[in-house]
């Protein structure tokens, strides 16, 4: 089965990103295809490499990056939601004249069309949020 995942909440504040991660990992381990993981609303905050959680806790951002690397996942952060919340990649940094970028490895910023495309292309779209 080809799956699309939508995540509407940021890390730590709400369990949505944890559930989505464990679901995605289980789906991959079962041999399903993850077409795309789309981060929307505060979910875009899952894509900043500047988070520093306590050492004895899970690192939600790094965990997504590692999963992306292992399975070649497409982790997409919504550009409009990202601009509101200060998630910046090198292109956005240049375009808006910011002094830094903060996007985590394995993530990319793109438009909302990517979510609709996932809906069209996938057998199932599963939404995680608050």
């Amino acid at each position: 089965m080809k799956l699309g995942i939508q995540i509407n909440e940021g890390p730590y504040q709400h369990q949505a990103s944890d559930t989505a991660y464990l679901f995605t990992k289980a789906a991959l381990e079962k041999g399903h295809e993850i077409f795309r993981v789309f981060f929307y609303h505060d979910g875009v905050n899952n894509g900043t490499r500047l988070t520093t959680p306590p050492q004895d806790d899970r690192n939600i951002v790094a965990r997504w990056s590692e999963l992306a690397e292992k399975y070649n996942l497409d982790l997409v952060i919504c550009v409009a939601a990202a601009q509101r919340r200060g998630i910046v990649d090198p292109d956005e940094k240049k375009r808006h004249g910011k002094d830094a970028d903060n996007i985590a490895p394995g993530f990319r910023i793109s438009g909302l069309g990517q979510l609709i495309e996932a809906g069209i292309q996938c057998d199932r779209l599963v939404v995680f949020g608050d």
């Binding site: 799956l3 464990l22 679901f23 289980a26 789906a27 079962k30 399903h32 199932r124 939404v127 995680f128």
Partner: peptide
């Protein structure tokens, strides 16, 4: 478990959260 969650998604044609 999470694998069972995946199975439920596969068994049902649509999911509403």
């Amino acid at each position: 478990d999470y694998a069972g969650f995946v199975d439920l998604v596969e068994q049902n044609e649509r999911v509403q959260a």
